[in-house]
């Protein structure tokens, strides 16, 4: 083994990404985030800090939200990954959360948005956000520097209300 992490050895990895089975080879130090962005061209998942501090890289990993920058890709053999590109329905119909984000102007520059939406979709699934205060608390792992927070909360409230109907 070289004493520095610049070698070119790769390992096999099977992943399902946005419903598609992928047989990949990755260097052991490649994060899931870099795999998605650099190798698979899925640039919708963003790199904001690469330290698990901002939430821009949030994806759904086996149905749960995860910071893709903190996950080494090779340890997720057999996992199912959904990124922002995999949320819309057939024919490009927006996921209700995506539509709610547009309607409530829940973003400005758009860079944190894919992470916010993936996080929000998982939050609704988790079923532990019923009040605006709970939404705020459970969405606080996703930083929005533009300050769209009130609109993000409004978008999630709308989806929760639609689901309750």
């Amino acid at each position: 083994m070289p004493d520095h992490p610049t070698g070119s050895d790769t390992l096999p990895l099977s992943l399902t990404v946005n419903g598609e089975a992928r047989q990949l080879r990755v260097a052991p130090w490649t994060t899931l985030l870099d795999l998605l962005r650099e190798d698979l061209g899925l640039i919708g998942t963003k790199k904001g800090c690469d330290h698990g501090q901002c939430g821009s890289c949030t994806v759904l990993l086996d149905g749960k939200r995860a910071n893709a920058c903190l996950v080494l890709a090779v340890v997720k053999e057999g996992s199912n990954v959904t990124t922002i590109e995999g949320l819309a329905g057939p024919g490009g119909a927006l996921h209700p959360m995506q539509a709610a984000f547009v309607e409530h102007d829940a973003f400005q520059c758009g860079y944190c948005t894919p992470g916010q939406i993936c996080s929000a979709v998982a939050l609704v699934e988790e079923g532990r956000a019923r009040t605006p205060d709970e939404i705020r608390e459970h969405m606080s792992g996703n930083i929005c520097r533009c300050g769209a927070y009130p609109n993000i909360v409004a978008a999630i409230e709308q989806v929760l209300a639609e689901n309750a109907r």
Partner: peptide
Amino acid sequence: SRVDGRAKVTGAARYSG
């Protein structure tokens, strides 16, 4: 609503890097 909204909520918007 923003005309670039769809690009931003679907991950299609491409930034410099």
